[in-house]
Write a protein that binds this DNA or RNA. Structure first.
Lengths: 146, 146
DNA sequence: TTATCAGTTCAAGTGAGCTTGAAGTCAACG
DNA sequence: CGTTGACTTCAAGCTCACTTGAACTGATAA
């Protein structure tokens, strides 16, 4: 068994489809070498990288966000346990922030919608979140604009 | 000032674009009457409904999910405070579930990625979530398939 | 030798949740 | 009377994160 993994092996081990892996490759989220045949060959640490990508997506980040996170890893060597630990540390903070937002949402749900006491345009619940930050498509920011 | 709101008024009060409101209307998430001119006219309680839609989206639900939630409201009369309370109650449970998932993710991040002790294919962190449930596109379920 | 399999590229398609543009209607203002 | 502004419909476009399909290569197995 070789040191390098084929895309199929990586797909089986990570549960991520080969098409998605090629897409990540193309977007620069993961890197590969090429075998003589032109086939991609991956180093084993790519698995940890993919794990990180999947986790981060479940937390709600876009691939662009994830890419800039991954850039914090050293690129001159295989990331060490320490490198990952550092990254993960800032991550627990992000997750906590998202949890806090959900808590706020929960209380807002109760106060503003559930109880009936407030009309929408008087609601003062602030929006500390991603949705308002990324002002793109989608129902825009909430509250505080009237 | 009339009892009924124009789409522009609703947009200003809710912070949701008129195009989005028409889209919600088309999808049946909100209902409107028509003025003689053919213009949409909304009853004031639509604001609360829109509030609910935006909240639910921030919690992470699709418009389809939200539509079926909204169907639980009585359609023969304007929803009362009690009706909204009932809906909100099941919602705090949903939010708590999502929070629990994030907590799990956090611990998984630390255990599986941060600490370096595990290789991906041996990780036993289960996936109790939406991502695995909706087996559609996207990085599929994680763990437990090897 | 032929078939199968795992891989390759590139272009196009998908679904969610809208936005944008074109062309038109209607009421009010000056 | 013209024009502004708010609205209408319908069709097409957009972003994200992929997936799918077509056409191809190269290595191995029968």
């Amino acid at each position: 068994m070789s040191e390098l993994l084929t895309i199929g092996e990586v797909a089986r081990r990570s549960g991520v489809a080969t098409s998605a892996l090629r897409y990540y490759d193309e977007r620069g989220l993961i890197t590969s070498q090429r075998a003589g045949s032109g086939h991609r060959r991956y180093q084993r640490p790519v698995l940890r990288r993919i794990a990180f990508i999947v986790f981060a997506q479940r937390v709600g980040l876009t691939l662009d966000d994830i890419a800039s996170e991954l850039e914090k890893l050293p690129d001159n060597r295989v990331p060490s346990r320490r490198d990952w630990s550092r990254l993960s540390a800032t991550w627990t903070a992000r997750i906590d922030a998202r949890i806090a937002e959900l808590e706020l949402l929960k209380s807002g749900l109760t106060r503003c919608i559930g109880c009936g006491c407030l009309s929408l345009d008087r609601c003062q619940l602030t929006n500390p979140g991603d949705r308002a930050a990324g002002l793109g498509p989608g129902p825009a920011y909430w509250m505080g604009n009237l």
